[in-house]
Design a protein around this nucleic acid. Structure first.
Lengths: 217, 217
DNA sequence: TCAAAACGGTATCAAAAGATACCGAAGTGG
DNA sequence: CCACTTCGGTATCTTTTGATACCGTTTTGA
């Protein structure tokens, strides 16, 4: 939320309706009173590594990519879709510290900006809010555990194939628009390794390689 | 909780006092009514990979090691100390599924066994319980994120040194009793790699190697 | 006591990944 | 249109880690 080019917009009931998360009318009223609607353009920085976080962004539309970097290496943690929020924001509500991760908008993205001071309080008062908090913690932990396990135990080629298949499955497509460098950034390795592996896959008849696009057979 | 050699013992107020987690007298009364005290010997299996979990074990004394395995490889997730619980138990309360991890007692260990059906309910009713749940989620996530980052970005030798230094620091000792194979199991690699790295450290004057013990200089 | 198991050191070889460099093709934007 | 950037293929070499084997020493437990 340190990005200078944030657009604050009017939060209305209609916009809030796009979130199918919170059922209590009283809570929805409080969201209208205390929260903002913000809009980001593609590639806008939402959270920087090391940044102190004062708000929890719940995605209404669009996608946020959360990742770790070290020197010139980068690895995906997760994507934040509509009706979701990011872990470092939620974490910061209960013990404010610096974000270990970065968050960037992948496309034009609208978020509901919730001040952190309400999170713990609303958790006690509203079941749907508590449910959201717990589900976020739980799902993000499971997801990270899965990623951790494959980084720890699997070779990169297996992880590449799994990534492509997951993505094809989720998006119900077989033509994945991604460059080799982007794929390297998702998996925490280098572009050359990815190119090498993908070429091997092409020779094995698993994929057809296009420029910035990979077709799964 | 599938281990056949569990010893059920009497849960008394005095034993419950060893936990400095829960402040409400009403909650402490409910813990006395609904929970059990169980005891494990060193090397007892507390949770198996793939097992469905019906209880949340809160450690009163002793230590539990939680880890992931794949084929004959193994990597530490975390240790559960007194006043703590494990993540797959807590996770199972909100959506029961198979444990992705294994848990083993590292020494004689006593745990408070809380049936999962009370977790979500008590979370709404007792602030200290909610605090425990949230803190567990948060701390375990942060911890896993840190481990993930070093597995993803650091070489094994760096991770070895960091492990040894962390352990020396936490235990306020400089003689760490661990075999090369155990260290390999903590870090998800092989014994030979560990031996090689440690030998290099010895040549560099960072450690002195003993049998089943490493002395940090 | 002694056989077996565990431990750790070392060697050899292989596989995986990284680092660097170069190049031709495609895309971008002034 | 054209200079520049991006993309991806490939080569070469290096580093890191893994796999396997062997061995001498120490520990364990019957």
């Amino acid at each position: 939320m340190g990005a200078d080019n944030i657009r604050k917009m009017t939060l209305t009931k209609d916009i809030l309706k796009q979130l199918n998360l919170f059922s209590e009318p009283e809570l929805r009223q409080k969201l209208l009173e205390h929260c903002l609607l913000k809009s980001f353009e593609k590639d806008d920085v939402i959270v920087r590594q090391g940044q102190y976080i004062k708000v929890v962004p719940i995605v209404i539309s669009g996608t946020i990519r959360v990742f770790q970097t070290k020197e010139d290496r980068e690895i995906l943690l997760y994507y934040v879709q509509p009706n979701q929020t990011c872990m470092m924001s939620l974490s910061a509500c209960f013990y404010n510290n610096e974000s270990p991760s970065q968050a960037i908008a992948m496309e034009k993205t609208q978020v509901l900006v919730v001040p952190t001071r309400f999170i713990a309080q609303w958790q006690k008062e509203y079941a749907s809010w508590n449910n959201f908090v717990i589900k976020t913690f739980r799902n993000r932990y499971d997801e990270l555990l899965h990623t951790f396990e494959s980084v720890a135990f699997d070779h990169v080629d297996k992880r590449v194939l799994e990534y492509l298949q997951d993505r094809a499955s989720i998006e119900a497509i077989n033509r994945i628009e991604i460059s080799h460098q982007q794929l390297a950034n998702e998996l925490g390795t280098t572009r050359v390794v990815i190119s090498r592996i993908l070429k091997q896959f092409e020779l094995e008849g698993k994929v057809i390689l296009h420029r910035k696009m990979i077709e799964i057979i």
